[in-house]
Computed example of a mutant assay.
Amino acid sequence: MPSSALALESEQPLTPAMVSAVWEIAAALDEQRVPSQVPNSVWLEVPTLRLRGEGGRADNIWLRKCLDRLIGIKISGEHRGDPWGAVVLAEWHILQGGSVARLLIPPAGVHALRSPSNFTKIEAAAAHQLTGHGRRLYALLADKKRLGRPYWTFELGELRTLMGVTKQKSYDRFNTFRQRVLDPAIDAINDYGTVTVRMTPEKRGRSVHAVRFDWRWKDPHNAAETVTENDRHSSTRRKQQATDDAPPMIEDPKEAARLWWEDLSEEERVSWADQVGREAEIGGVMQPRPERIIREIAFAASGQGGQAAQ
């Protein structure tokens, strides 16, 4: 599934603060284990400090404007070939002396933000696990991603302002700014995010006057691996098997089937579904098989899995 599986649309440009707020809402839904399919809208309470982000204003003036604009954001996508649309936020309240935001998320919004089949979960995980400069740079690049550009160039002064480091005079020197802010942020993004980022300083004479960022957004298969890595304990992240004949690191056959299925093309999935059968007799009545069952049967039939699912 392409990274545009979840599209955000707004009459006004989405700011990094709004992107970060959407990520935090998705992360909060995940933490509270709200299922992706809900019959009714969900009330969600999130600390305002979390929504404001690290380094944000101490009051909620800008957060209130951000929430107002989030109500106007439309989300859209496709489910089994059928288009759908909704809003990401239907209603908001600031409670408990300004410390808590109570948000009403419609069912389609919950599904979009909780679906593991699109990049939202990965971006939410990245934004939630990244801190400080990494999160801020990630939000800036994701904002440019929606413009469909493969790169973006920031003037050095603009970049310092956007990264929130204008008060640190030591960062006026590019080498210090790069070593303490940009390089660590890029390393963190490349490790946790859905994108591979490369930075190129641009000089005017002997001085750096701008910084260009080139990015390549990961394909769905690599993105699924990112989700798996982000969910692993820090002591086992990015570790490879010791030998080629060692047991596979993915021991759960259902997880192995899911990853195998996601690596297939759409034509291959259709072919496998036709081969194993899209329906099964249950209680004397033919019922459609869930995709999960189809992929597990197909995985077993492919010779790469164990016993077929019943």
Rank of each mutant, 00 (worst) to 15 (best):
V165N: 07
S3P: 00
Q241H: 08
P47V: 03
E255D: 08
A86P: 04
R178T: 06
G193K: 08
L67F: 08
Q129K: 11
E11M: 07
G134F: 03
I250P: 05
G193N: 12
T131F: 10
R146D: 13
Q168I: 07
F174M: 13
W152S: 09
S20P: 02
A309G: 00
G277A: 05
L259E: 01
F154E: 10
G157L: 06
D274T: 12
T161L: 01
K254W: 09
P106G: 13
R212V: 06
I71N: 07
P247Y: 02
G164I: 12
I61V: 15
K144Y: 12
D191C: 10
V100H: 00
D59F: 14
L259C: 01
P107L: 11
Q240C: 10
F174W: 15
R173Y: 12
M249G: 12
L156Y: 13
L104K: 15
A7K: 14
T236Q: 05
K65R: 14
Q307M: 05
C66K: 00
E268G: 10
K254F: 08
W92C: 06
T15C: 01
Y138D: 04
V211F: 07
A273M: 05
T196Y: 12
C66P: 02
K218V: 03
N118W: 06
N230Q: 08
K144N: 09
M249H: 09
E31G: 04
A127I: 04
R232P: 00
R216V: 07
P150R: 03
A273C: 02
M199E: 09
E251S: 15
Y192V: 15
L70P: 01
A188R: 00
G72Y: 07
R102W: 05
V270M: 03
S302H: 06
A125R: 13
H221N: 05
E268Q: 15
P201N: 03
A280P: 00
K169R: 14
V195D: 07
W215K: 04
E296N: 14
E78R: 14
L159S: 01
P107M: 08
I94K: 10
L259M: 11
V181Y: 02
A210V: 05
D214L: 00
H93M: 10
K144D: 06
A28C: 01
A142L: 13
L113H: 04
V34P: 04
Q179T: 14
A257L: 04
T200Y: 13
A142F: 09
